[in-house]
Write a protein that binds this DNA or RNA. Structure first.
Length: 279
DNA sequence: CGAATCTCCTGGAGGC
DNA sequence: TGCCTCCAGGAGATTC
């Protein structure tokens, strides 16, 4: 389940492709979350990859050429992985989409559960419905305690659900939501608008720390995530609470608890994490 | 508007 | 070995 650190790691792994020209596009299984545009094998060849950006968990690949320009938007969904191959090795079962470059390198998207996406955007991408109403990037200064408290002001839902809402802040998925709440000492069920500015400060800081740690580790090592070189080279991150039901809290030794919040499994320590208005 | 629920999909784990 | 059920989960769509 790629979260923001994995997507950013993927982006960095693909940077060698910047400046290259597309040779061919192959669509093997066009039905991802939305259909892959069928015109890509005609549109992309001859275009140059000018830059690779990331917004939230979307990878934005800027292309241009004599015939025009556009942005290839890629999303990994929850089981997606992009490999950078030196050669177009025979595709395997869930290898749905290839972009081959003129030097022989191939960007290959594999996505068994097909929650991912490949789209073609033209014009001002920030106006695209998928991107237009996204909240700030968690690692930018724009995401700070003042902003967060204001964004949560009218929200009564659980804080865990709130920080997973891309309109509040992007890139905080289920794993890092549980982790950063534990590290902030905030109970996941706390109503979002009950957080004091001080607790918002703590939460913002811990979200940034948690994401940065994962980023520095090259993404967390989830079983269906691999880097662009195809190797599962990342060490298993040691989580404080995620996936540790009934195991001892690393801080107080009491058993980690689990519950469902917004249809998602949520892990927390009832002793270390406090609800409500705590200074 | 906010909040909760539904939905897409497949592979892996566990039960018998 | 096979079959069944449950679970994982990003985030848009739908409903209330």
């Amino acid at each position: 389940m790629p979260e923001l650190p994995e997507v950013e790691t993927t982006r960095r792994g693909l940077l060698p492709l910047v400046g290259r020209v597309v040779h061919a596009v192959t669509i093997r299984h066009p039905t991802l979350r939305w259909p892959i545009p069928t015109h890509l094998p005609q549109t992309l060849p001859g275009m140059t990859l000018n830059s690779l950006r990331r917004r939230a968990k979307y990878l934005l690949c800027d292309f241009s050429g004599a015939s025009g320009s556009g942005i290839l938007l890629l999303h990994l969904g929850m089981s997606g992985r992009i490999q950078l191959l030196d050669d177009a090795y025979p595709a395997e079962k869930h290898d749905h989409f290839d972009v081959a470059f003129s030097d022989g390198q191939v960007l290959r998207l594999r996505d068994p559960r097909r929650f991912g996406a490949v789209l073609w955007l033209q014009g001002n991408a920030s106006n695209h419905p998928l991107l237009a109403s996204l909240g700030p990037e968690p690692l930018e200064d724009e995401f700070n305690a003042k902003y967060l408290q204001k964004a949560l002001a009218n929200k009564t839902l659980a804080i865990k659900n709130a920080i997973m809402d891309g309109h509040v802040v992007v890139g905080v998925g289920n794993i890092y939501a549980s982790e950063s709440l534990f590290r902030s000492g905030i109970h996941p069920e706390t109503p979002a608008n009950h957080l004091s500015l001080k607790r918002c400060e703590k939460l913002v800081a811990e979200i940034k720390l948690t994401l940065n740690e994962a980023l520095n580790a090259g993404g967390s090592s989830l079983r269906d995530f691999f880097g662009t070189n195809g190797l599962p080279g990342y060490f298993q991150q040691s989580y404080f609470v995620y996936g540790r039901t009934d195991e001892p809290c690393r801080v107080c030794d009491k058993a980690i608890k689990t519950m469902r919040l917004g249809q998602r499994s949520t892990f927390f320590c009832a002793h270390c994490q406090k609800r409500g208005l705590v200074a």
